[in-house]
């Protein structure tokens, strides 16, 4: 059993790092690199939302943190000339700190109230970005340089993306590695003591508080981890598109992060990843249908929900492995 888990990670890494590039190379669909990079980054942000679901809160405010993370990284890179790879964890940390300040009061809210406040939070982030001078208002920050070289005692760990002949592939590899790391961390959290405590929060907060669980601390912790993931996803996105605007992440994105979790299934760690893949790819593939794209996409969403209200991974096919455990 213990050998199986690292094996799973290695298999996943092999699939995303060897099989997928090979398939793309064979099929010649180079544009899929960008799509898959987006899927990887969006699924990191969705993983954060999933963690807040895990403590029993509906989070529709991840867009706020992806936006904050994006701006943090963009400002640090353009104004202070910092290395992108250094701003990446910094963006995450800034988001985590902000989320602690915001989370302390609003995590007292529950159910629909929390959901609606987080929804409003996305709007707050967008409007703040419009109003502040440092974010350059509606014009946004453009011409952000590519990630530069990261070296450690003269040994190059990550090459300069600007000099690579195929930066798309580099971005793809960087984001899928981050994605695998995030999901490994998420899996570790869920299966640790912390995860069990989170589950107790999800089931009954009063009860777990009465047996001595520090619920206030736990929910802020989970929320800040979630926002950290949102921050690094946002920062990477900004670096790929080399620009950030107040409208880069909006309410729709926040809602999509939540939908990814629902679609994949709230009871499964890999749920948000699958949900993101299906939703984003589905949307992309339906592009050929022109003006009927949204109609068919939303009909499929509704049908899926009526057919599988507990998420894709609740299918018997996937359940077999989960039950054995």
């Amino acid at each position: 059993m213990n050998i199986k888990k690292p094996l799973l990670v290695i298999v996943l890494l092999l699939v995303v790092l060897v099989l997928v590039p090979w398939l793309i190379h064979v099929s010649g669909r180079w544009d899929f690199y960008y799509t898959l990079t987006s899927v990887a980054l969006l699924s990191i942000a969705s993983a954060g939302v999933w963690l807040t679901f895990y403590i029993g809160r509906i989070n529709i405010g991840q867009g706020a943190y992806t936006l904050i993370g994006g701006y943090a990284s963009a400002i640090l890179v353009t104004k202070l000339g910092m290395n992108f790879w250094l701003t990446l964890p910094l963006a995450g940390l800034i988001c985590a700190l902000i989320s602690i300040v915001i989370g302390l009061p609003i995590l007292r809210l529950r159910g629909v109230y929390f959901a609606m406040v987080t929804l409003v939070l996305t709007e707050v982030a967008r409007l703040t970005a419009l109003a502040l001078p440092i974010t350059n208002g509606a014009k946004g920050i453009v011409n952000i340089p590519m990630p530069t070289e990261l070296s450690f005692f003269g040994i190059t760990i990550i090459p300069d993306f600007g000099t690579l002949e195929n930066p798309k592939l580099a971005f793809y590899i960087a984001s899928v590695i981050m994605m695998v790391l995030c999901y490994a961390a998420l899996y570790r959290i869920v299966n640790s003591r912390l995860g069990h405590l989170c589950r107790s929060l999800q089931q009954n907060e009063e009860l777990s508080a009465s047996i001595g669980v520090n619920t206030a601390y736990l929910r802020v912790l989970a929320y800040s981890i979630s926002s950290f993931m949102g921050g690094i996803a946002g920062a990477s996105f900004v670096s790929i598109s080399q620009s950030v605007y107040p409208s880069s992440f909006q309410v729709v994105d926040s809602v999509n992060f939540m939908l990814n979790c629902f679609l994949g299934g709230l009871g499964f760690v890999l749920g948000p990843m699958l949900g993101t893949l299906v939703l984003y790819f589905g949307w992309d593939l339906l592009f050929t249908l022109g003006k009927y794209q949204l109609l068919i996409y939303s009909s499929m969403l509704i049908l899926l929900m009526v057919w599988l209200p507990n998420g894709l991974l609740s299918l018997k096919l996937f359940n077999r492995g989960a039950k054995k455990k």
């Binding site: 679901f53 509906i58 959901a115 809602v255 939540m258 939908l259 629902f262 679609l263 709230l266 939303s298 969403l301 509704i302 929900m305 009526v306 209200p309 507990n310």
Partner: peptide
Amino acid sequence: ESTMLLAAG
């Protein structure tokens, strides 16, 4: 909460 996905759909 699953109804939220439906409502959004």
